[in-house]
């Protein structure tokens, strides 16, 4: 009898956590909706933020949950972008089909490169991931006839979404489209990280050795996680191709990979929210600081990174808890 009491007591502790999360989720979605009305002249910029959040969420799955540091995440994003862009130019301009194409392309490239990358670890993996993105960059650059090379892929002209909502000059449709896709991706990730698959990813992060000793094939699990991340980054890439109706080589570039990493570290890894806050903070600072001083904005970002690394290693998402601790609000 007494065992049963303890049992139910310990198990019930899951519940408050969930509802607090749902509340924060709702606040975030509301903010995303409100932003449309508050900043009607920045829809293009805000859409870029939404798309980038998808990319950084995907990186969080790999780095934050599974603990695999990669500096080649643009390979997955860019592949999704080019696949969706070329699909629109050469096959069908249906946006939703294009999203699927981008997701599949991102997942396939992640799976194939993951077969090599996930054999490595640490610095080797970091260098190899850069190499994969660089190879894709060169391939796309040299296949000018198909991809537009360094001029970028032009001539994308998307059909209306579901045949109803046409992409408009002000980017209204694009914003809602990106917001809805982001919300769906976020919900998917929220479910996945709470699933057995997510638990395994966290286990791998903590100890490869221990995971092997409980019978997990760590390598194949990592390939699986990377493939899912590839699909998600591919969706981000596809969105960017469709919303801007342009794909440039930068979508495969090292800069994009590195910035995604910085955004995630700023916001905090392994908690999904970090990807959202880190991206919003980075891109907003970039946007405003760069318009004030186009040459020195990087110092602002650099300062923020140093602040995070030294004072809140868990990222800005960890700031409230840390402040609370300092003020003696929590034990």
């Amino acid at each position: 009898m007494s065992v049963d009491v303890t049992k139910s007591k310990t198990r019930n502790r899951f519940k408050p956590k969930i509802s607090r999360r749902v509340l924060l989720d709702l606040v975030l979605v509301t903010a995303g909706i409100a932003a449309f009305f508050v900043f009607p002249n920045s829809l293009g910029f805000m859409t870029r933020i939404l798309i980038m959040i998808i990319m950084v969420l995907s990186l969080d799955l790999v780095l934050g949950y599974a603990g695999v540091a990669s500096l080649g995440h643009a390979a997955l994003f860019g592949t999704g972008a080019y696949a969706a862009g070329m699909f629109a130019v050469y096959a069908s301009a249906n946006p939703l089909l294009g999203l699927v194409v981008g997701a599949v392309a991102g997942a396939v490239i992640a799976f194939v490169s993951g077969l090599i990358l996930m054999r490595a670890s640490g610095l080797t993996l970091l260098m190899l991931s850069i190499a994969v993105a660089q190879i894709l960059f060169e391939v796309v650059n040299s296949e000018r006839d198909l991809t537009g090379g360094s001029d970028g892929l032009l001539g994308i002209d998307m059909d209306p979404i579901l045949g109803i909502y046409a992409f408009d000059f002000f980017g209204r449709t694009g914003y809602w489209y990106a917001l809805i896709v982001l919300v769906l991706v976020f919900i998917l990730l929220r479910i996945v990280v709470a699933s057995p698959f997510g638990l395994v990813a966290r286990g791998i992060h903590e100890s490869h050795e221990r995971m092997r000793a409980i019978g997990t094939s760590v390598y194949w699990r990592l390939v699986g996680i990377y493939t899912l991340a590839g699909g998600i980054a591919g969706i981000g890439g596809a969105l960017s191709a469709q919303v801007t109706e342009l794909v440039s080589l930068e979508s495969l570039g090292f800069n994009l990979s590195a910035e995604a990493m910085i955004m995630l570290i700023l916001g905090g890894t392994g908690r999904l929210y970090g990807a959202i806050f880190g991206t919003v903070i980075f891109m907003t600072v970039h946007h405003t600081a760069a318009s004030i001083d186009p040459f020195n904005w990087l110092f602002v970002i650099g300062g923020m990174v140093l602040f995070v690394v030294y004072f809140v290693p868990e990222g800005f998402m960890g700031l409230p808890a840390r402040l609370g601790k300092h003020l003696g609000l929590r034990k």
Binding site: T10, I191, V192, S195, P196, F197, L199, V200, R202, G203, E206, S207, E209, R210, A213, I214, G215, T216, L228
Partner: peptide, 28 residues
């Protein structure tokens, strides 16, 4: 050699799920 940042319960849950072949699901 444990999953240090996980709860004790999760440390036990993981091997059981793996043992029972229940560790692959993405949903639930």
């Amino acid at each position: 050699t444990l999953f240090k940042r996980m709860s004790v319960r999760e440390n036990i849950r993981l091997p059981i799920l793996e043992r029972d072949g229940k560790s692959h699901g993405w949903f639930g």
